[in-house]
Design a protein around this nucleic acid. Sequence first.
DNA 1: ACAGGTTTCTACAACGTTGTAAGCAACGTT
DNA 2: AACGTTGCTTACAACGTTGTAGAAACCTGT
Lengths: 336, 336
Amino acid sequence: MRHRLKDVAERAGVSVKTVSNVVNGYLHVRPDTRARVEEAIAELNYRPNLSARNLRKGRTGVIALAVPELDIPYFAELARHVVSAAAEHGWTVLIDQTGGGPEQERKVASGIGDHMIDGLIFSPLALTADDLTGLDGMPMVLLGERVDHGPADHVVVDNVAAAREVTAHLIGLGRRRIAAIGSQRTPEGASARLRLAGYTAALAEAGIGYDEKLVAPAPAWHRADGAAAMRELLSSGVRPDAVFCFNDTLALGALRALHEAGLRVPDDVAVAGFDDIEDGRFSIPTLTTVAPDKERIARLAVELLAGRLDGDREGPPRELTAPHRLATRESTTGRP
Amino acid sequence: MRHRLKDVAERAGVSVKTVSNVVNGYLHVRPDTRARVEEAIAELNYRPNLSARNLRKGRTGVIALAVPELDIPYFAELARHVVSAAAEHGWTVLIDQTGGGPEQERKVASGIGDHMIDGLIFSPLALTADDLTGLDGMPMVLLGERVDHGPADHVVVDNVAAAREVTAHLIGLGRRRIAAIGSQRTPEGASARLRLAGYTAALAEAGIGYDEKLVAPAPAWHRADGAAAMRELLSSGVRPDAVFCFNDTLALGALRALHEAGLRVPDDVAVAGFDDIEDGRFSIPTLTTVAPDKERIARLAVELLAGRLDGDREGPPRELTAPHRLATRESTTGRP
DNA sequence: ACAGGTTTCTACAACGTTGTAAGCAACGTT
DNA sequence: AACGTTGCTTACAACGTTGTAGAAACCTGT
């Protein structure tokens, strides 16, 4: 059985509270008392019972990170950074998978309070502000798109600007028939809408007409969806000379479909993505992409949460923008 | 502020324990009383305080999963399955990243008891049985290689057989100069040793001599390591006609290096990996690989843990083997 | 030796929950 | 009418910890 403060106290011949004081680094403990207690702690291999401590303190030291799916590389990479950033604050991260569906996401949002959690970092796809009720003032930071005028803090990337930049890059290479893969009309398509807006803005700036046939929808943003959308585009006869995919997994799927169709990248079709996942640095060809600063996103999110936990829980929601850059690689330039 | 049983009890005009009984589905509660209590619960949006419940019950409903790195696709995919399997038992999963280094891994192993955790699923790289002390009988399941004669349950894949099969597949294609990438001499290289053993066994069965120069070490098993090892092999002049990489990320890196060297896969060099990560189904070419049944691995691990939690905590350690199959794709056969 | 302060330690209550044991109705049976 | 049964409800204690308030021990300077 596990030992308790009381066991340590009896062994060291002091009161329970004195042991607690030693454990918590309270200053006014005589060196020899402290030594005796520490010895007893070591001998019994005492570990505090966190449930009890939390019950007493009202803090658990655990924050939750809710992402759609862990095996989507972008979220896995993000999760890694969040875990690291949280560790610097002495927090542990409990990871929830929402599955990305609206109902499931709602369930996580409302049920998260069931966990022993101090705060929540949520990367929602389908959520609206209305779903964020029932959290009883649980501090929360949202990643990605703004849940319109919701009550929570946000960390965002400037999707419109980033999409505009990458599209402008394709235009700068002399491409004119630039397709887009990943549009979505569903409510969860907030990122899709903004990236599409950046794409059309860049076309307009360059005086290139918008052709609806060049815009391919993708129900999800997995490799298979990218491949399917690319095949669709190719068979529809619109003959793009470049493709901007709204994320990297779509782009990797598109590369695959282009390969199967016998087209060369970038000679026949240039391809660009969004997210800068590890795969894209080793794919054949390597993938031009928008590289959001994931480490910064994670760090900002954790710091926003820290601010809510220690400081004003009631202040107005804040919104921070994480930087991004364009990583040009073989899939558009032919050079690594 | 959050409401407590007491608040609900006052509102419903019953005792605290009756509310507790309703919340926990105790049978003998009069329907009208139950209705009144449930109404009060709904009105106050009452949620049980899990810290308190756990303190009382001694169970937290949370298990930990400790993996080296979340952004290694194999572990991310595994994590997804573990989270799903755990959810079926009503458990939440807390994910710990060990970073894979021996000291860090030891720290996680010994410090895991600090969390409010009922059990632990651990996928160690560097750990030995000695490191698994200080857990005070915390139920634990190890994934991957056996920590030799350690006290814990295991779920393993037959690494030797799988490596033998994939090597035999390469031999069956007529290849004779088969390289291996990923060998490790460090203590954490248990998987590497077993996969190497399968490789050499297959060579011996086919009467092919073992050539040490064809075996390339890889400090870690990331894409970059695979690419570096492949470049090393190519520049050393050993001219392999096939490569068995000890995992898929190594193989993807090797594909990249072969591409840069102007060699064709599989015509000049056939490539096979291990793990069956999502990437390998969309890479160019698609990747032949050993496909361990990750979903089964996760399910078995969770069930072993469940057995320890509900049943005999003291029984002898059990070891279960998860099935695997060979997924042949373009990188060896030229066909999808 | 003593007042006054500081340091060191302790007893007690509280955090929110559930198990135990016992109480109180209402019922059917002798 | 007294009896045990059964169904429903309650008071109390306990889980292991820490905050509060105060007691005891220790200093200092007179």
